[in-house]
Design a protein around this nucleic acid. Structure first.
Lengths: 167, 167
DNA sequence: GTAAATATGTCAATATGGCTGACGTAATTT
DNA sequence: AAATTACGTCAGCCATATTGACATATTTAC
Protein backbone atom coordinates (compact mmCIF):
# COMPACT_ATOMS: atom_id res chain seq x y z
CA UNK A 1 0.00 0.00 0.00
CA UNK A 2 1.32 3.42 -0.94
CA UNK A 3 4.41 1.68 -2.20
CA UNK A 4 4.13 2.43 -5.90
CA UNK A 5 5.19 5.94 -6.85
CA UNK A 6 2.80 8.59 -8.09
CA UNK A 7 2.22 8.70 -11.81
CA UNK A 8 4.18 11.32 -13.70
CA UNK A 9 0.95 13.20 -14.42
CA UNK A 10 -0.18 13.29 -10.82
CA UNK A 11 3.26 14.39 -9.72
CA UNK A 12 3.44 17.20 -12.23
CA UNK A 13 -0.02 18.32 -11.15
CA UNK A 14 1.31 18.58 -7.61
CA UNK A 15 4.32 20.56 -8.78
CA UNK A 16 2.00 23.03 -10.42
CA UNK A 17 -0.35 23.15 -7.46
CA UNK A 18 2.65 23.94 -5.29
CA UNK A 19 3.29 26.95 -7.48
CA UNK A 20 -0.31 28.14 -7.58
CA UNK A 21 -0.92 27.52 -3.89
CA UNK A 22 2.20 29.32 -2.75
CA UNK A 23 1.46 32.21 -5.07
CA UNK A 24 -1.94 32.74 -3.48
CA UNK A 25 -0.83 31.79 0.01
CA UNK A 26 1.45 34.82 0.19
CA UNK A 27 -0.92 37.17 -1.64
CA UNK A 28 -3.00 38.19 1.40
CA UNK A 29 -0.06 39.19 3.61
CA UNK A 30 1.60 40.87 0.64
CA UNK A 31 -1.33 43.23 0.34
CA UNK A 32 -1.28 44.16 4.01
CA UNK A 33 2.49 44.58 3.99
CA UNK A 34 2.20 47.08 1.17
CA UNK A 35 0.23 49.40 3.43
CA UNK A 36 3.23 49.53 5.78
CA UNK A 37 5.89 49.85 3.12
CA UNK A 38 7.08 46.35 3.96
CA UNK A 39 7.67 43.22 1.88
CA UNK A 40 7.77 39.48 2.37
CA UNK A 41 11.16 39.63 3.98
CA UNK A 42 9.74 41.78 6.76
CA UNK A 43 6.91 39.32 7.22
CA UNK A 44 9.27 36.43 7.73
CA UNK A 45 11.23 38.28 10.34
CA UNK A 46 8.09 39.36 12.17
CA UNK A 47 6.74 35.85 12.08
CA UNK A 48 9.73 33.96 13.35
CA UNK A 49 10.76 36.52 15.94
CA UNK A 50 7.19 36.54 17.19
CA UNK A 51 7.23 32.80 17.46
CA UNK A 52 10.50 32.68 19.37
CA UNK A 53 11.03 35.96 21.21
CA UNK A 54 14.58 36.49 22.35
CA UNK A 55 16.09 34.55 19.49
CA UNK A 56 19.53 35.61 18.31
CA UNK A 57 20.27 37.15 14.95
CA UNK A 58 22.21 34.06 13.99
CA UNK A 59 19.28 31.76 14.78
CA UNK A 60 17.10 33.87 12.56
CA UNK A 61 19.65 33.72 9.76
CA UNK A 62 19.78 29.94 10.06
CA UNK A 63 16.03 29.70 9.68
CA UNK A 64 15.68 32.13 6.82
CA UNK A 65 18.81 30.86 5.10
CA UNK A 66 19.74 34.28 3.80
CA UNK A 67 22.87 36.34 4.36
CA UNK A 68 23.52 38.71 7.20
CA UNK A 69 23.57 41.61 4.76
CA UNK A 70 20.17 40.72 3.31
CA UNK A 71 18.66 40.53 6.76
CA UNK A 72 20.37 43.74 7.83
CA UNK A 73 18.31 46.23 5.89
CA UNK A 74 15.01 44.54 6.65
CA UNK A 75 15.75 44.24 10.33
CA UNK A 76 16.89 47.85 10.51
CA UNK A 77 13.65 49.04 8.94
CA UNK A 78 11.56 46.98 11.35
CA UNK A 79 13.51 48.38 14.28
CA UNK A 80 13.40 51.98 13.00
CA UNK A 81 9.66 51.80 12.51
CA UNK A 82 9.12 50.32 15.94
CA UNK A 83 8.02 46.76 15.22
CA UNK A 84 11.11 44.98 16.53
CA UNK A 85 13.57 45.81 19.28
CA UNK A 86 16.84 44.30 20.40
CA UNK A 87 18.14 43.51 23.86
CA UNK A 88 21.70 42.74 24.83
CA UNK A 89 22.13 39.09 25.78
CA UNK A 90 22.55 38.54 29.50
CA UNK A 91 24.96 35.63 29.41
CA UNK A 92 26.58 36.74 26.15
CA UNK A 93 26.67 40.47 25.72
CA UNK A 94 27.66 40.23 22.04
CA UNK A 95 24.19 38.98 21.24
CA UNK A 96 21.39 41.33 20.24
CA UNK A 97 18.33 39.28 21.14
CA UNK A 98 15.27 39.95 19.02
CA UNK A 99 11.80 40.80 20.29
CA UNK A 100 8.59 42.20 18.83
CA UNK A 101 7.11 45.40 20.17
CA UNK A 102 3.37 45.48 20.77
CA UNK A 103 2.90 47.00 17.34
CA UNK A 104 5.06 44.21 15.93
CA UNK A 105 2.96 41.50 17.54
CA UNK A 106 -0.22 43.17 16.35
CA UNK A 107 1.05 43.33 12.80
CA UNK A 108 2.21 39.74 12.98
CA UNK A 109 -1.24 38.62 14.04
CA UNK A 110 -2.83 40.70 11.34
CA UNK A 111 -0.61 39.12 8.71
CA UNK A 112 -1.18 35.62 10.01
CA UNK A 113 -4.96 35.90 10.12
CA UNK A 114 -5.69 35.39 6.44
CA UNK A 115 -3.20 32.53 6.22
CA UNK A 116 -4.78 30.75 9.16
CA UNK A 117 -8.18 31.11 7.55
CA UNK A 118 -6.88 29.91 4.23
CA UNK A 119 -5.26 26.82 5.72
CA UNK A 120 -8.27 25.99 7.86
CA UNK A 121 -10.56 26.26 4.88
CA UNK A 122 -8.16 24.17 2.82
CA UNK A 123 -7.92 21.30 5.27
CA UNK A 124 -11.60 21.33 6.21
CA UNK A 125 -12.34 18.57 3.76
CA UNK A 126 -14.75 15.64 4.00
CA UNK A 127 -11.80 13.30 4.48
CA UNK A 128 -11.17 14.97 7.78
CA UNK A 129 -7.73 13.63 8.45
CA UNK A 130 -6.10 15.66 5.71
CA UNK A 131 -4.23 17.90 8.10
CA UNK A 132 -1.89 15.28 9.46
CA UNK A 133 -1.10 13.80 6.09
CA UNK A 134 -0.58 17.23 4.67
CA UNK A 135 1.77 18.11 7.45
CA UNK A 136 3.78 14.95 6.90
CA UNK A 137 3.87 15.51 3.19
CA UNK A 138 5.09 19.07 3.52
CA UNK A 139 7.66 17.92 6.05
CA UNK A 140 9.00 15.42 3.59
CA UNK A 141 9.19 18.11 0.95
CA UNK A 142 11.92 19.72 3.00
CA UNK A 143 15.42 18.62 2.02
CA UNK A 144 16.69 15.78 4.21
CA UNK A 145 19.67 17.91 5.25
CA UNK A 146 17.27 20.52 6.59
CA UNK A 147 14.71 18.25 8.20
CA UNK A 148 16.30 18.07 11.60
CA UNK A 149 16.47 21.85 11.79
CA UNK A 150 12.88 22.17 10.62
CA UNK A 151 11.67 19.50 13.00
CA UNK A 152 13.55 21.18 15.83
CA UNK A 153 11.96 24.47 14.95
CA UNK A 154 8.45 23.10 14.68
CA UNK A 155 8.78 21.14 17.91
CA UNK A 156 10.31 24.06 19.72
CA UNK A 157 7.85 26.55 18.31
CA UNK A 158 4.98 24.31 19.34
CA UNK A 159 6.19 24.47 22.91
CA UNK A 160 6.79 28.20 22.81
CA UNK A 161 3.74 28.52 20.64
CA UNK A 162 0.86 30.81 21.16
CA UNK A 163 0.31 30.91 24.90
CA UNK A 164 -2.35 28.33 25.73
CA UNK A 165 -5.36 29.26 27.82
CA UNK A 166 -3.68 28.05 30.96
CA UNK A 167 -0.81 30.44 30.36
CA UNK B 1 -15.96 14.45 11.01
CA UNK B 2 -13.41 17.02 9.88
CA UNK B 3 -15.88 19.68 10.83
CA UNK B 4 -13.98 21.33 13.67
CA UNK B 5 -11.21 23.62 12.53
CA UNK B 6 -7.53 22.91 13.06
CA UNK B 7 -6.04 24.16 16.30
CA UNK B 8 -4.13 27.42 16.08
CA UNK B 9 -0.90 25.57 16.78
CA UNK B 10 -1.40 22.98 14.07
CA UNK B 11 -2.36 25.69 11.62
CA UNK B 12 0.70 27.79 12.38
CA UNK B 13 2.86 24.70 11.99
CA UNK B 14 1.40 24.27 8.51
CA UNK B 15 2.08 27.90 7.67
CA UNK B 16 5.71 27.40 8.60
CA UNK B 17 5.95 24.11 6.78
CA UNK B 18 4.61 25.84 3.69
CA UNK B 19 7.52 28.25 3.96
CA UNK B 20 10.16 25.60 4.57
CA UNK B 21 8.79 23.23 1.95
CA UNK B 22 8.58 25.84 -0.76
CA UNK B 23 12.03 27.11 0.09
CA UNK B 24 13.52 23.68 -0.47
CA UNK B 25 11.19 22.74 -3.30
CA UNK B 26 12.68 25.44 -5.51
CA UNK B 27 16.25 24.95 -4.36
CA UNK B 28 17.14 22.09 -6.73
CA UNK B 29 15.99 23.83 -9.92
CA UNK B 30 17.56 27.08 -8.71
CA UNK B 31 20.95 25.41 -8.65
CA UNK B 32 20.60 24.03 -12.16
CA UNK B 33 19.27 27.32 -13.48
CA UNK B 34 22.34 29.10 -12.16
CA UNK B 35 24.51 27.06 -14.54
CA UNK B 36 22.56 28.51 -17.47
CA UNK B 37 22.44 32.07 -16.18
CA UNK B 38 18.70 31.71 -15.66
CA UNK B 39 16.43 32.27 -12.68
CA UNK B 40 13.08 31.07 -11.39
CA UNK B 41 11.20 33.22 -13.84
CA UNK B 42 12.83 31.35 -16.71
CA UNK B 43 11.90 28.07 -15.10
CA UNK B 44 8.24 28.99 -14.93
CA UNK B 45 8.15 29.96 -18.56
CA UNK B 46 9.93 26.77 -19.62
CA UNK B 47 7.61 24.70 -17.51
CA UNK B 48 4.29 26.07 -18.64
CA UNK B 49 5.20 26.46 -22.29
CA UNK B 50 6.46 22.88 -22.25
CA UNK B 51 3.19 21.75 -20.76
CA UNK B 52 1.07 23.56 -23.32
CA UNK B 53 3.05 24.08 -26.51
CA UNK B 54 1.56 26.69 -28.81
CA UNK B 55 0.09 28.74 -25.98
CA UNK B 56 -0.22 32.47 -26.54
CA UNK B 57 1.75 35.09 -24.67
CA UNK B 58 -1.46 36.27 -23.05
CA UNK B 59 -2.30 32.79 -21.76
CA UNK B 60 1.13 32.60 -20.20
CA UNK B 61 0.67 36.01 -18.58
CA UNK B 62 -2.67 34.90 -17.14
CA UNK B 63 -1.08 31.85 -15.57
CA UNK B 64 1.99 33.57 -14.18
CA UNK B 65 0.02 36.65 -13.13
CA UNK B 66 2.85 39.01 -13.90
CA UNK B 67 3.03 41.95 -16.30
CA UNK B 68 3.90 41.82 -19.95
CA UNK B 69 7.04 43.85 -19.25
CA UNK B 70 8.23 41.44 -16.58
CA UNK B 71 7.74 38.50 -18.87
CA UNK B 72 9.38 40.34 -21.76
CA UNK B 73 12.95 40.25 -20.59
CA UNK B 74 12.81 36.63 -19.47
CA UNK B 75 11.13 35.46 -22.63
CA UNK B 76 13.60 37.36 -24.79
CA UNK B 77 16.52 35.68 -23.04
CA UNK B 78 15.02 32.25 -23.48
CA UNK B 79 14.45 32.92 -27.17
CA UNK B 80 17.90 34.46 -27.70
CA UNK B 81 19.59 31.49 -26.07
CA UNK B 82 17.57 29.03 -28.10
CA UNK B 83 15.29 27.41 -25.55
CA UNK B 84 12.01 28.90 -26.77
CA UNK B 85 10.78 29.91 -30.19
CA UNK B 86 7.71 31.70 -31.44
CA UNK B 87 5.44 30.96 -34.37
CA UNK B 88 2.89 33.27 -35.93
CA UNK B 89 -0.66 32.18 -35.18
CA UNK B 90 -2.43 30.63 -38.18
CA UNK B 91 -5.93 31.84 -37.52
CA UNK B 92 -4.79 35.07 -35.82
CA UNK B 93 -1.54 36.38 -37.16
CA UNK B 94 -1.11 38.84 -34.30
CA UNK B 95 -0.37 35.97 -31.98
CA UNK B 96 3.16 34.74 -31.33
CA UNK B 97 2.57 31.16 -30.22
CA UNK B 98 5.15 29.78 -27.82
CA UNK B 99 7.06 26.52 -28.19
CA UNK B 100 10.11 24.92 -26.61
CA UNK B 101 13.08 23.97 -28.76
CA UNK B 102 14.65 20.56 -28.16
CA UNK B 103 17.16 22.20 -25.84
CA UNK B 104 14.26 23.85 -24.05
CA UNK B 105 12.44 20.59 -23.52
CA UNK B 106 15.64 18.94 -22.31
CA UNK B 107 16.24 21.70 -19.81
CA UNK B 108 12.64 21.57 -18.69
CA UNK B 109 12.93 17.85 -17.99
CA UNK B 110 16.20 18.36 -16.22
CA UNK B 111 14.66 21.00 -13.96
CA UNK B 112 11.59 18.90 -13.28
CA UNK B 113 13.48 15.75 -12.36
CA UNK B 114 14.48 16.72 -8.82
CA UNK B 115 11.02 18.09 -8.09
CA UNK B 116 9.36 14.90 -9.25
CA UNK B 117 11.66 12.89 -7.04
CA UNK B 118 11.07 15.18 -4.11
CA UNK B 119 7.29 14.96 -4.44
CA UNK B 120 7.30 11.21 -4.93
CA UNK B 121 9.44 10.74 -1.87
CA UNK B 122 7.21 13.12 0.08
CA UNK B 123 3.96 11.37 -0.74
CA UNK B 124 5.36 7.87 -0.43
CA UNK B 125 4.04 7.56 3.10
CA UNK B 126 2.52 4.58 4.91
CA UNK B 127 -0.90 6.20 4.71
CA UNK B 128 -0.77 5.68 1.00
CA UNK B 129 -3.62 7.91 0.03
CA UNK B 130 -1.76 11.07 0.92
CA UNK B 131 -1.41 12.18 -2.67
CA UNK B 132 -5.07 12.83 -3.31
CA UNK B 133 -5.66 14.59 -0.05
CA UNK B 134 -2.57 16.63 -0.56
CA UNK B 135 -3.72 17.62 -4.00
CA UNK B 136 -7.11 18.67 -2.71
CA UNK B 137 -5.57 20.60 0.11
CA UNK B 138 -3.21 22.48 -2.15
CA UNK B 139 -6.08 23.16 -4.52
CA UNK B 140 -8.07 24.70 -1.73
CA UNK B 141 -5.10 26.85 -0.81
CA UNK B 142 -5.58 28.66 -4.08
CA UNK B 143 -7.79 31.73 -3.82
CA UNK B 144 -11.40 30.98 -4.75
CA UNK B 145 -11.26 33.60 -7.47
CA UNK B 146 -8.39 31.73 -9.07
CA UNK B 147 -9.63 28.18 -8.61
CA UNK B 148 -11.52 27.91 -11.84
CA UNK B 149 -8.46 29.05 -13.79
CA UNK B 150 -6.24 26.65 -11.88
CA UNK B 151 -8.66 23.78 -12.29
CA UNK B 152 -8.94 24.55 -15.99
CA UNK B 153 -5.20 24.54 -16.28
CA UNK B 154 -4.70 21.33 -14.36
CA UNK B 155 -7.46 19.56 -16.27
CA UNK B 156 -6.22 20.86 -19.57
CA UNK B 157 -2.61 20.13 -18.79
CA UNK B 158 -3.53 16.62 -17.78
CA UNK B 159 -5.00 16.06 -21.20
CA UNK B 160 -2.10 17.68 -23.02
CA UNK B 161 0.19 16.19 -20.45
CA UNK B 162 3.22 14.12 -21.07
CA UNK B 163 2.36 11.96 -24.05
CA UNK B 164 1.12 8.64 -22.73
CA UNK B 165 2.58 5.35 -23.95
CA UNK B 166 -0.03 5.08 -26.62
CA UNK B 167 1.16 8.40 -28.09
C1' DG C 1 46.93 38.05 29.35
C1' DT C 2 47.26 37.74 24.69
C1' DA C 3 45.39 35.55 20.63
C1' DA C 4 41.69 33.56 18.15
C1' DA C 5 37.07 32.96 17.33
C1' DT C 6 32.32 34.60 17.54
C1' DA C 7 28.17 37.82 17.13
C1' DT C 8 26.86 41.56 15.02
C1' DG C 9 26.80 45.62 12.02
C1' DT C 10 27.87 48.14 7.83
C1' DC C 11 29.69 49.85 3.18
C1' DA C 12 29.74 48.97 -1.69
C1' DA C 13 28.71 46.79 -5.85
C1' DT C 14 25.80 43.60 -8.44
C1' DA C 15 21.84 40.58 -10.05
C1' DT C 16 17.05 39.13 -10.43
C1' DG C 17 12.47 39.82 -10.95
C1' DG C 18 8.87 42.32 -10.05
C1' DC C 19 6.27 47.07 -11.01
C1' DT C 20 4.11 51.47 -13.66
C1' DG C 21 3.63 54.39 -17.58
C1' DA C 22 4.10 55.37 -22.25
C1' DC C 23 4.46 54.46 -26.98
C1' DG C 24 4.46 51.75 -31.42
C1' DT C 25 2.98 48.32 -34.87
C1' DA C 26 0.40 44.96 -36.98
C1' DA C 27 -3.83 42.54 -37.35
C1' DT C 28 -8.53 41.81 -36.27
C1' DT C 29 -13.13 43.24 -35.14
C1' DT C 30 -16.87 46.42 -35.27
C1' DA D 1 -12.63 53.86 -41.26
C1' DA D 2 -12.26 53.40 -36.33
C1' DA D 3 -11.66 50.82 -32.27
C1' DT D 4 -9.76 47.03 -30.12
C1' DT D 5 -6.50 43.37 -29.45
C1' DA D 6 -1.86 40.99 -29.27
C1' DC D 7 2.45 41.84 -28.73
C1' DG D 8 6.89 44.30 -28.16
C1' DT D 9 9.88 47.75 -26.14
C1' DC D 10 11.92 51.86 -23.76
C1' DA D 11 12.74 53.98 -19.36
C1' DG D 12 12.76 54.28 -14.59
C1' DC D 13 11.80 52.43 -10.02
C1' DC D 14 11.59 49.07 -6.06
C1' DA D 15 12.42 44.85 -3.20
C1' DT D 16 15.25 41.27 -2.19
C1' DA D 17 18.80 38.63 -2.70
C1' DT D 18 24.05 38.02 -3.52
C1' DT D 19 29.54 38.49 -2.57
C1' DG D 20 33.43 40.67 -0.50
C1' DA D 21 35.56 43.53 2.72
C1' DC D 22 36.07 45.69 6.98
C1' DA D 23 34.98 47.26 12.01
C1' DT D 24 33.81 46.48 16.85
C1' DA D 25 32.78 44.31 20.99
C1' DT D 26 32.93 40.22 23.53
C1' DT D 27 33.97 35.65 24.68
C1' DT D 28 36.82 31.56 24.56
C1' DA D 29 41.14 29.12 24.18
C1' DC D 30 45.86 28.65 25.20
Amino acid sequence: MGDHPLSEQDTVALIELMFFAYRDFVSDPDEILGQYGFGRAHHRVLHFVGRDPGMTVQQLLDILQITKQSLGRVLKELIDKGYVFQKEGETDRRQRLLYLTEAGEELRQRLMGPQINRIRRAVALPEGSAAHLYRKVLYHMVSPANREAVRDWIDRASLLGEPTDGG
